[in-house]
Design a binder for these strands. Structure first.
Lengths: 153, 153
DNA sequence: GCTTGACTTGGAGCGCGCTCCAACTTCTAG
DNA sequence: CTAGAAGTTGGAGCGCGCTCCAAGTCAAGC
């Protein structure tokens, strides 16, 4: 484990800011990084691998709270492997549902774009200069993914 | 256009809360809704269609600010159709990239889960009761999608 | 008429995920 | 040795997207 990368180097490579890297360490997402003589952080290859993993969790919208839970389990050693696997499996299920919801919505957007394009064509041919708006009347999808489908009161 | 649905009905149907529906109207995402005698909102079918469209934008992570811009354009009538189409096209491009990034990260998670599972197997066969952690050493992906890849200073 | 409950408004508050500031120390180049 | 860049910490601040509170109005059933 060669500890060599400065925080700015890591920032450059990961796309995170140095601020965010320190923040992640502060809140326990990243375990305390090795320090050079003067107290400056030196990131090892294993740190980089872990950060990249965190970024994959982030890309898939895992909230920081869950990442913290996961990081804590990891810090507790091998006996938490099964629990970690279960967390990832649950997360993966969410992610796949999410991807599917986005895919469907993207398809709707594509349809709407096509509709707009057709409308622009018809505007171009007969110069229909007065009112009468393009209405958002497409078939009612029921696409919910964010946590908003809660039971209030 | 039959104006009949109460705010709670719409909440139930869309998965939004009544709070959020009023909020969206306040900030101009939804145009002022028709009112019954006592000032209570009565949502028309066209309102529902628009809300469902907004939900698709939300599902695909369009920020509220952009939705506001879009809603404003829509309110300005047919002459903004082309601009709206361009907005949607740009958004769709982002969405597709996003989906792809999530898909890739999901795949990485799948691999990691398999790795954990294998590890659990090996733990089960030879009772390896001491330390030595599973390290997050998988190939370095460069998966960035959120806006974090900025140029600081 | 009275109660219950759903609705109204304006504005305050909140959780998340950073983002930055102040004040200071350390490293590097010339 | 010195200047300037880059690093450090604790803590404050911020933008987003809601979420809720207070205080009041309105509608329907008994």
């Amino acid at each position: 484990m060669e500890s060599h990368l400065s925080i700015d180097e890591v920032a450059k490579r990961t796309g995170l800011t140095a601020h965010t890297l320190r923040y992640y360490e502060r809140i326990g997402l990243i375990a305390p990084v090795a320090r050079a003589a003067g107290g400056q952080r030196r990131y090892a290859a294993s740190d980089m691998a872990w950060i990249e993993f965190l970024l994959r969790l982030r890309t898939t919208h895992m909230p920081i709270g869950k990442m913290q839970t996961f990081a804590k389990l990891r810090g507790a050693g091998d006996r938490t492997v099964s629990e970690r696997r279960q967390m990832l499996e649950a997360h993966l299920t969410d992610v796949l549902a999410n991807i599917e919801a986005m895919r469907q919505s993207a398809e709707s957007l594509r349809v709407k774009i096509a509709y707009y394009r057709a409308f622009e064509q018809s505007l171009a041919s007969n110069s229909n200069t007065d009112e009468g708006d393009v209405n958002e009347t497409q078939k009612s999808l029921r696409t919910r993914t964010r946590k908003t489908a809660r039971n209030r009161r």
